[in-house]
């Protein structure tokens, strides 16, 4: 195994550019799981991001909250302003693992790990976050809702690092994050849901019910058009268009679909059938 220890972002980008198979490592909370028995992983080359101090802080501009490429869940939980303006970020962060994971896990790592069950990604997506990728070739901005193309497939090239996650500052008239896990704390989501409403319209983002985390355009349309919905069952056709859950070791497709519909129905009770 090889580890490269860059001291600056340009150095890290050089290393990634010259070794097309090197893997960036940040908090390690995905990469190090079951590490001793994953001997294949020991044959790879890693680029350690942990000393790229410039990527750590979160910052504010007049119209954006900018998370750094190394900002952790705990950084956001402790930031009173973030909690106030983007409550779903803190809400989701608190439900990621437990404190030991929140202290190490990064938002960028959550995005690039590309788990369909992630908790950081849905709230970022519901806030219209934009992923800023950087490589020796330059910078690129990709809206998070267009970042994934399939299971663990994404618009990031191996030489690119996520250096920023930019979140537009907007007034929200409604926002909710729901995580349904196998237990209350420290559980991977069986169903995740983030919903926001702002001047930009409704955003409904579903997790753990498709190969990637994704927006739900059919459900969003029902909300935009003020369609009356009388029961969770009435949402099932739209849910079926938007997501494609599976049976796996954690839950069943059926359960996921129904919970999704019930959460949407009950959480948004005040909005069904009301336009504008």
């Amino acid at each position: 195994m090889n580890v490269l220890l860059p001291g600056s972002l340009p150095e890290a980008l050089d290393m990634l550019a010259s070794d097309g198979a090197a893997i960036p490592i940040a908090g390690g909370t995905d990469l190090l799981v079951h590490w001793p028995v994953r001997v294949d992983a020991h044959d790879r080359t890693y680029v350690d991001l942990s000393r790229l101090d410039a990527l750590k802080p979160l910052s504010w501009t007049a119209d954006e909250l900018v998370l750094g490429g190394l900002t952790t869940y705990w950084d956001v939980i402790r930031d009173a302003r973030a909690a106030q303006e983007f409550p779903l970020l803190g809400n989701a962060a608190r439900q990621v693992g437990a404190i030991q994971i929140q202290a190490r896990g990064t938002w960028a790592g959550n995005i690039v790990n590309a788990s369909p069950a992630a908790d950081g990604v849905p709230v970022l997506m519901a806030y219209d976050a934009v992923v800023v990728l950087e490589s020796r070739r330059g910078r690129e901005q990709v809206p998070l809702d267009r970042f994934y193309s399939g299971y663990k497939e994404m618009r990031r090239h191996p030489d690119q690092l996520v250096v920023e996650i930019r979140i537009p500052r907007r007034p929200y008239s409604y926002q909710v994050f729901e995580k349904v896990g196998g237990r209350r704390a420290q559980a991977i989501a069986k169903v995740g849901l983030a919903v926001t409403r702002s001047g930009a319209g409704w955003r409904v983002v579903a997790a753990s019910v498709a190969p990637t985390i994704r927006r739900c355009p059919a459900v969003e349309r029902l909300l935009e058009t003020g369609t009356a919905i009388a029961s969770p069952e009435a949402l099932l056709p739209a849910v079926a268009r938007d997501v494609a859950p599976i049976d796996d070791i954690r839950s069943s497709a059926r359960y996921r679909t129904h919970v999704m519909a019930r959460l949407l129905y009950h959480d948004l009770r005040d909005f069904w059938g009301k336009r504008g």
């Binding site: 580890v3 190090l32 799981v33 030991q100 190490r104």
Partner: peptide, 30 residues
């Protein structure tokens, strides 16, 4: 567990609790 679930390996890294089973040792330099 070696998977970050149990917390039996908790240590402080710069004063904050972390699971030492998920920390590559080279990362604690300095």
């Amino acid at each position: 567990c070696g998977e970050g679930e149990c917390g039996a390996c908790t240590v402080y890294l710069d004063g904050v609790p972390v699971n030492s089973c998920l920390v590559p040792t080279y990362q604690v330099r300095g």
